[in-house]
């Protein structure tokens, strides 16, 4: 059993495409699209969202990802209608980046709040949120530079051809989302897929992993395993 995801977009094609993209990185996660109006126009449909929520109801909870404006309102209204606000939550995250981060976290078996957090963590990496334009990343970067003493730190060289592209970044961020550790990789938040991608680290680059917290050692081993196996790629 895993957390399930529902994508609410103004466009049926965007919702379907986003689901297709995320499914590639998280083949075992139930991800359902709810895009466009009932008659195929641009807009959001309460009926489609409710139908998707009903279809996804038997998992370990549902995280909804949305695009703009009324999609957020429709999703919130659907949660109110469904009468089960504890098992259905909205992620305040950019649709595509958030969905992929959430899908990868769900694929690793993370619980509802962890999947939601994984999606929302990408906001910091992009340096913007819907409500508070705070860059979590830069804050933690400054803090780390000044007085942060990592309990565990190690360096690993990327061996796979394509380096730290989307899928490897998603694997790292998704796995870390379920651990109780504060991890940075070359100064960026390891739990943020988009943050990792901003490193643009190619084959031969060295990743400096620094970690604190109860799961610090486990987190570093996890990253080591992924990096040294080339993320399962050639």
């Amino acid at each position: 059993m895993t957390v399930r995801l529902v994508v609410v977009s103004h466009s049926e094609k965007i919702a379907d495409g986003a689901v297709e993209l995320a499914a590639q990185m998280a083949p075992d996660v139930v991800i359902l699209p709810a895009g466009g109006t009932d008659d195929g126009r641009i807009g959001t449909s309460m009926e489609k969202v409710m139908a998707a929520l009903a279809e996804a109801a038997d998992g370990d909870g549902i995280v909804i990802l949305t695009d703009l404006g009324s999609a957020v309102m429709t999703a919130e209204a659907a949660i109110e209608f469904s009468g089960d606000p504890d098992s259905v939550v909205l992620a305040d995250a950019p649709l595509i980046e958030g969905l992929i981060a959430a899908a990868v976290a769900a694929q690793t078996g993370a619980d509802l709040r962890t999947v939601q957090k994984a999606a929302e963590a990408v906001r910091g990496a992009l340096g913007q949120g819907r409500d508070e334009p705070v860059s979590v990343n830069e804050e933690s970067r400054t803090q780390h530079a000044a007085d942060w003493q990592p309990e565990v730190s190690e360096s690993f060289e990327l061996v796979n051809e394509a380096g730290l592209h989307a899928r490897p970044a998603a694997k790292i961020a998704g796995g870390l989302a379920g651990m109780d550790a504060d991890v940075t990789i070359n100064g960026v938040d390891g739990a943020s897929m988009t943050g990792l991608m901003t490193l643009a680290a190619g084959k031969g680059s060295v990743l400096r992993v620094e970690a604190n917290g109860p799961d610090a050692a486990k987190a570093v081993r996890y990253i080591q395993g992924l990096v040294q196996s080339g993320f399962g790629e050639s």
């Binding site: 109006t37 009932d38 126009r41 641009i42 807009g43 959001t44 449909s45 309460m46 009926e47 404006g69 009324s70 309102m73 429709t74 919130e76 209204a77 109110e80 209608f81």
Partner: peptide, 20 residues
């Protein structure tokens, strides 16, 4: 329920929530 499903724009969830 009908307004939320059929209106499409922001007015759908707003009026839908009001009536609900």
């Amino acid at each position: 329920m009908s307004l939320m499903s059929k209106v499409g724009g922001a007015a759908g969830p707003l009026y839908g929530t009001a009536f609900l």
